[in-house]
Design a protein around this nucleic acid. Sequence first.
DNA 1: TAATTATTGTGATGCATATCACAAAATAAT
DNA 2: ATTATTTTGTGATATGCATCACAATAATTA
Lengths: 225, 225
Amino acid sequence: MQSDCKLCPFNTRATSMLSEESFGQLSDNHLELKFKKGDTIIKQGMFSTNVVFLRRGLAKIHLNGPYHEQIVRLVKAPTYLGLPTTFGDKVNQYSVTAVTETEVCYIDVHIFQKILNENREFSNEIIIELCQNELESFRRCANRTQKQIRGNMADVLIEFAEKIFQSDSFTLPVSQSELANLVDTSRESVSRVLGEFDKDGLISLEGKRIEILNKKSLRLISQNG
Amino acid sequence: MQSDCKLCPFNTRATSMLSEESFGQLSDNHLELKFKKGDTIIKQGMFSTNVVFLRRGLAKIHLNGPYHEQIVRLVKAPTYLGLPTTFGDKVNQYSVTAVTETEVCYIDVHIFQKILNENREFSNEIIIELCQNELESFRRCANRTQKQIRGNMADVLIEFAEKIFQSDSFTLPVSQSELANLVDTSRESVSRVLGEFDKDGLISLEGKRIEILNKKSLRLISQNG
DNA sequence: TAATTATTGTGATGCATATCACAAAATAAT
DNA sequence: ATTATTTTGTGATATGCATCACAATAATTA
């Protein structure tokens, strides 16, 4: 219930297709919230009544697996977080936690539904986003189970560089044990593999600071599993 | 370019919301095809220009992984097959192959897009379907990597019984090596685990014929990994 | 600045399961 | 029917990686 959504600097390609009227409805029916690192944005098992839009920051989507947490993926603003849950199920099937400081908008489902109905272009964009996510899920699923640790670690590093930070040097946004949950391995293995990559000159590793030195070789490792 | 879609006995909840006019457009712009067991319906890597609707039969969605085929899941009619690809990407990111004799409709993307735009209820249903699939992907992803073989095998058997055949006794629609690709394990392990389940009285196994005798215990195994 | 607490590095050990190897059935082809 | 081919069962062996254990370092908090 705050600022004018039309003026929001975090508008996406999808929202740019909204009508004046829809923007007004959005502005009147959303709630802006800030989260600190580690805060829970969406909690698995809780009832879901809002569409959640991550407008600034980094978040992790994770599941409370039978044994340990599993991080499904890291997502970067701008993106919708609660879509699959809000439309597919009433109860959140996963948790979302802030990895950096984060800004989030909560939008009432009914209003969002109404806006979807009244804006064809917008709903098309949403369908496309969902489709792309599903394809991405397929890819992940296939990779993680078939490759082995070095391959998956290589993938994650490349993904960080290309999708999240858009730079070959970055600071790991998560601890090694979180990285382990993301790659489906143990904390110890993450440490060992990062050490190997460093020793072999594929990356330079200084604390949480990483620079990718040989992306070609990393890609090769990714392919060979 | 054949029968009247409105009279198709395989209409779904989504299609039931189409207007007369849209049904007409569908009827004039779709192609019905039959496939035999083992035939390729969608081929990974090929250009995609159609939405594909599986109206009868069973199909497997699979990826050409780096080493061996990975079956992402078995799907049962009625369902859309090519949606994520057609909207998320121009190139098929996965293959779909007929597991039983199968009937499929190919619908031109542009017509489908048009119908989506002109039928709110329909496009809402499609969004819901996509969301549910994404949640399902999450669940699978989490399970397969965290549980171990016996757990995943138990899951697949329960899924076959409940989602695919709606009966506790059924004939396995795929070979053990395909089952292995679905569960992410080796053919030998599938054979061993099925043998164990049989010996322990959880299922009765006669060739490809399976009857689930103790679903409760299977569920327990599924949870303990 | 000291004291706690969380994170990371690294060896030693164990285990689940892949892989190999080959026989036995079952299916399909001739 | 007979042969060829695919599918299945089962032991023996190999191995990638989790787990355990503990030291070293870094990051918080007092």
